[in-house]
Amino acid sequence: MTIGVLVDVLLALSLVGLSLQVVTGRALFRDLVLFILFGLLIALSWARLGAPDVALAEAAIGAGLTGALMLMAYRRLAAGGAADVSPARRRPLLALPVAALAGILVAIIGLSAQGVERVPDAAGTLVLQELSATGLGNPITGVLLVFRGLDTMLEMAVLLVALLGAWAVLGAAHPGRLHQVDRETPLVSALLTTVAPVTLLIATHLLLVGTDAPGGAFQAGAVLTGCGVLLVLTGTVRPRAAAGLLTKLLAIAGLAAFALIGVSALALGRAPMTLPGMWAVYLIETAMMLSIALTMTLLFARSRALGPEQR
């Protein structure tokens, strides 16, 4: 048994143990922290499975952003005096049978996947064969932008619908008031001046290497969102009541860039969603990154727009 297998077994056991703890936990806050830990271990698992793209996205979104969102929700609950309510201690009779059946289902899927022979013309191998024609070095980006471009475009649509839904729920209410970190603390402003530029740098790097190595619009957008969340939490940018033109344009940028380039291929007599060249890849990825980062930051800030502090 090699060390790698040992690490995998440890990881799998910790995942099962952690998920049990999260579900049967006694205190809400503890469950939240454990859930964030769970997300980090999932990211590690993706890395172990050789999927660094997914690992990056999971670490940034699954653990980081979701964690921040849940902690924010917890804070609101605590302010309303509702956080002491521990999750229901009832154990429904159905829970055990359902868990057992789900476990059996997963085991069956896993065991049957073990016996599957590689089909010569499966989608994955075809993608790897055809990848060189796209000019992209990273098969993940190839699938996302070229081979299954429509799916990715629709994902951007889903994100936009989520934002519109959140705006509808917000209604005419005043922009969300957030508890902010005291910026008088010298360390916090030092953190901002260091981390914000570095985050921008990392996001740009992820976006640019995404064509050839792990990275891309989703990872870059998630990292940029981290910067946005930091700015919101420190009160550097404040929620605004109405979205201006810039906010609206940025929110639809990813979907619009994808759709326009995809449809314009028709006018040029090519198949729809055919990308005209590498410049289109960079354009779409940049637009998607901006849309993703803006949408998620707005969702986090519970607001329609963000702007610098008004005096």
Binding site: V181, D182, T185, L187, V188, A190, L191, T194, V195, V198
Partner: peptide, 16 residues
């Protein structure tokens, strides 16, 4: 260095 920065600031905020 980034780890140091994050640890220093978060420890400071928690203590505060």
């Amino acid at each position: 260095l980034l780890g140091l920065t994050a640890a220093a600031v978060s420890a400071h905020l928690i203590a505060r």
